[in-house]
Design a protein around this nucleic acid. Structure first.
Length: 288
DNA sequence: CTTGTACCCTGACCGC
DNA sequence: TGCGGTCAGGGTACAA
């Protein structure tokens, strides 16, 4: 899926368009896009007629609060949790997108302003789920801190990493530890912090943890500024590409010279995913 | 608790 | 042109 910056990009574009819009009709093209215990019919019933509130994001999840139109000011009793996973995309318009671009219709939410929010997902790993607000609150508690919020300090990260023997890259990918970092930005943050991704998380010294905390925030902020990274399927709203792929320093650059020292970038597999790093700038031993 | 593996699904790409 | 293998911004279920 898109990682934190990509989901945040989509949220920012979607929020002003969806706020106060009523959902008039729901069409589900593939039943497996409705996640969770509700059937597609139950999903449609729970969502139809509801008014969407301010779109939010937690980790890589997009949240659409649903108000009862009769008392729209009350806290939203339920919400739609959207997981884009690897290939989820949105299109918002009065008419369907070009089928040549948007080849895999998934879920359509027709709105009361005449437009429809189209969700497309090639691999159908993502989808929508309707949840009671309390149920989401329980799930949410198991997620790690938001790296761009004030609580994500060096000390907080140090506490998360302390005593962990798993490689630092794996820990960064674990949503229970830090929420929203995925495979691209884990590699990028470790490159910026000059830390070998294979190091045991608990072996990082205080200076390294401080560098990593700043690197994570820095790379996520820069990626949001660039509307995300489009390396293959990710698109922002209505098919737009991000630009941060032009600023990647490690991810996807196997064999290319390191931007700092010209040593060829290496690729290894960790937790079943590719990790890219510079063997010279990111030494195996602890650095100051 | 932790870690690793299989799996969900389709499409793009590479070597033969 | 076809075929098989590998890989892809993710997460979950299950086994050890």
């Amino acid at each position: 899926m898109p990682e934190l910056p990509e989901v945040e990009t989509i949220r920012r574009e979607l929020a002003p368009e969806l706020a106060r819009r009523r959902i008039r009709a729901v069409r589900v093209h593939h039943d497996d896009l409705i996640l969770g215990p509700a059937s597609p019919a139950e999903f449609a019933r729970a969502v139809r007629g509801r008014v969407i509130g301010e779109a939010a994001r937690r980790a890589k999840v997009l949240l659409l609060p649903l108000h009862d139109p009769a008392r729209a000011e009350a806290p939203a009793p339920s919400l739609i949790r959207v997981q884009l996973r690897m290939t989820g995309r949105f299109w918002l318009a009065a008419s369907p997108p070009d089928p040549a671009e948007f080849r895999h219709p998934g879920i359509d939410l027709a709105l009361d302003d005449g437009r429809t929010l189209y969700y497309d997902d090639v691999r159908r790993l993502g989808g929508f789920e309707v949840l009671r607000a309390e149920t989401w609150a329980e799930i949410e508690r198991d997620l790690g801190p938001e790296p761009l919020e004030a609580g994500f300090t060096g000390a907080r990260l140090a506490g998360i990493l302390a005593g962990r023997r798993a490689p630092i890259k794996n820990v960064l990918l674990d949503q229970r530890r830090v929420a929203g970092v995925g495979n691209i930005y884990a590699s990028e943050a470790l490159f910026r912090a000059r830390i070998d991704p294979r190091r045991p998380a608990g072996s990082l010294g205080p200076t390294e943890v401080a560098r990593l905390q700043r690197a994570i925030r820095g790379v996520l902020r820069a990626a949001i500024r660039g509307s995300g990274t489009t390396v293959s399927s990710y698109r922002a709203m209505n098919g737009r590409s991000g630009t941060f792929q032009n600023e990647l320093r490690a991810y996807g650059r196997e064999g290319e010279p390191c931007v700092r020292c010209r040593t060829p970038v290496e690729r290894v597999v960790q937790a079943g995913r590719s990790t890219y790093f510079c063997p010279r700038c990111q030494p195996r031993s602890r650095s100051a």
